[in-house]
Simulated scan of single mutants.
Amino acid sequence: MAHPQYTQLVPGRVAAIIPVSDITIASAAYRSIFGLKQTFQNGDPVGYMILEGGAAELHLSLQPDHNAPKFNVAHMLVSDAAQAHKACEAQGFRIIKALKDQDYGLRSFVFADHDGNRIDVGQTL
Rank of each mutant, 00 (worst) to 15 (best):
F34I: 03
S61K: 13
G54I: 02
A56W: 02
Q8Y: 11
A15P: 05
Q91S: 15
V73T: 14
L62I: 05
P69Q: 02
G92V: 03
S108Q: 11
I18L: 11
V14E: 09
E89I: 15
L58F: 05
L9C: 10
N72G: 12
V46C: 08
G43E: 07
A90T: 09
A15W: 09
Y104E: 04
P19L: 06
I33A: 00
L9I: 15
R107C: 07
Q5P: 05
D115I: 03
C88V: 03
M1D: 12
G122E: 02
S79I: 08
L62N: 01
A74P: 07
A90F: 05
T39A: 10
T7L: 12
I17P: 04
P64Q: 00
H85D: 09
H3I: 07
T39I: 14
L106D: 15
A81N: 05
D101E: 11
N117V: 04
F34W: 03
A82Y: 07
G43R: 06
E57S: 13
V10M: 11
I17W: 07
R31H: 09
H59W: 07
Y104V: 04
V121L: 06
D101R: 11
D65Y: 03
V10L: 10
L58I: 15
G47E: 08
S21T: 14
L62D: 01
C88Y: 03
P64E: 01
S27P: 04
L9V: 14
F111L: 06
G43F: 02
V46Y: 04
V20I: 02
G122Q: 04
I17N: 12
V121D: 01
A87K: 11
M49K: 02
A16V: 11
I18V: 15
Q91N: 11
L58H: 03
A87E: 06
I23F: 02
L36M: 02
S61C: 11
F109R: 04
D101W: 06
G122M: 00
S32A: 15
A112H: 01
A84Y: 02
V110Y: 01
P69W: 01
M49Q: 06
K100Y: 12
A29L: 07
L99R: 03
K100G: 12
L9F: 14
F109M: 07
N42M: 15
L99H: 00
K97S: 14
Y30K: 01
D120L: 10
R13E: 12
Q8L: 14
G54V: 00
K100L: 12
H114K: 10
L58T: 04
R107Q: 08
A29M: 07
I96Y: 05
L77A: 13
D120C: 08
T39W: 03
L51T: 02
N67T: 15
I25F: 09
V73G: 08
V20D: 00
Q38P: 09
G35E: 01
Q123S: 02
M76Y: 08
A84I: 06
Q83N: 13
R107A: 07
M1Y: 10
T124K: 11
D65W: 05
A26C: 06
K86M: 11
T39M: 08
M49T: 03
D44C: 08
P69G: 09
L51I: 06
E89M: 13
S61I: 10
S32E: 15
I33E: 02
G35P: 04
A15Q: 10
A84E: 01
I18D: 00
Q38A: 10
D115V: 00
N117I: 04
V10C: 08
S61F: 09
E52I: 06
